[in-house]
């Protein structure tokens, strides 16, 4: 059974149909890529799934639960984490603190217990720290642990943002252009990490990506979009051979 089902989702801004009649299902432990030319509505679709935008039509069901109308801060509690195309981190905090905030959804202690710093809070904090250290090891961020995010190079910040999403231990992770701005070596690392997220961390991955070599290397299925609509859905090979997809990219 699909872990995420998107049914007939559409959204308009004024008269513009930014996303129109999109339906697909993503299986557990699948790596699912969304491709398309600029302005195709890929990020808008991500923003609808993660509840920044209110869809005008359709529904989104995650893990058997309708999440079409939940508030944005409940998205991560439901088990969906995401990264952003233009990196959203807490710039004046260290890498460690950024990852620790990724653990926020797992906290159970209330304000009173927090203030008194009871043993329960202590244990919770220790468990968080252990999980965060696992993520730091996984992404090889050790040498940046105590560095302020604002001073880090773009490629590293991108990985820190991925780390914060992983620290939340989501079942589904949404990656918006994971390879943009990365150099060749960093992109190769990204391929391995995405595969490990599925193989070792049991996650389902949906990513928006322009780099077709990365898409072909890791994705099980690809959804191609253009002008808010679905062009093709299938294996990377099938989608690449689709005449409509080629036409959309070449402006035909």
């Amino acid at each position: 059974m699909a872990v995420l089902s998107v049914s007939d989702v559409g959204i308009s801004f004024g008269g513009l149909r930014a996303v129109d009649g999109i339906s697909f299902g993503v299986e557990p432990r699948e790596i699912f890529a969304i491709i398309g030319p600029n302005g195709a509505g890929k990020t808008t679709l991500f923003n609808v799934i993660s509840r920044i935008y209110e869809p005008s039509t359709g529904s989104i069901v995650f893990d058997g639960r309708d999440i079409t109308r939940i508030p944005p801060h409940d998205v991560v509690r439901a088990g969906i984490a995401r990264t952003f195309q233009n990196i959203n981190l807490f710039d004046n905090a260290t890498v460690l603190d950024n990852l620790m905030l990724g653990r926020y959804r797992h906290h159970r202690s209330g304000v009173l217990r927090q203030t008194l710093f009871t043993p329960f809070v202590r244990r919770e904090k220790l468990a968080d720290r252990r999980k965060v250290e696992e993520v730091i090891d996984f992404l090889e961020l050790g040498k940046y642990r105590d560095v302020l995010v604002a001073g880090l190079p773009y490629g590293v910040r991108k990985i820190v943002e991925l780390g914060r999403a992983l620290a939340a231990e989501p079942r589904l992770i949404l990656l918006d252009e994971p390879s943009s701005g990365l150099n060749v070596e960093e992109t190769r690392d990204m391929v391995f990490w995405i595969q490990d997220m599925r193989d070792d961390l049991d996650m389902t991955v949906i990513m928006i990506e322009h780099d077709m070599s990365l898409v072909s290397a890791v994705s099980d299925r690809v959804l191609a979009m253009s002008s808010g609509r679905m062009l093709a859905l299938g294996t990377p090979g099938e989608v690449q051979r689709d005449p409509g997809v080629a036409a959309a990219y070449l402006g035909g």
Binding site: I52, P72, V75, V76, A81, L89, F90, A93, R105
Partner: peptide, 26 residues
């Protein structure tokens, strides 16, 4: 600097979008 709510407030002040997607009710 210590209480979770205090840290959540700091996070909100630095980046509302990122705070929201870390599960903080803005």
């Amino acid at each position: 600097s210590l209480a979770r709510v205090g840290v959540a407030l700091q996070a909100t002040s630095q980046n509302q979008l990122a705070a929201g997607y870390s599960g903080i009710d803005i």
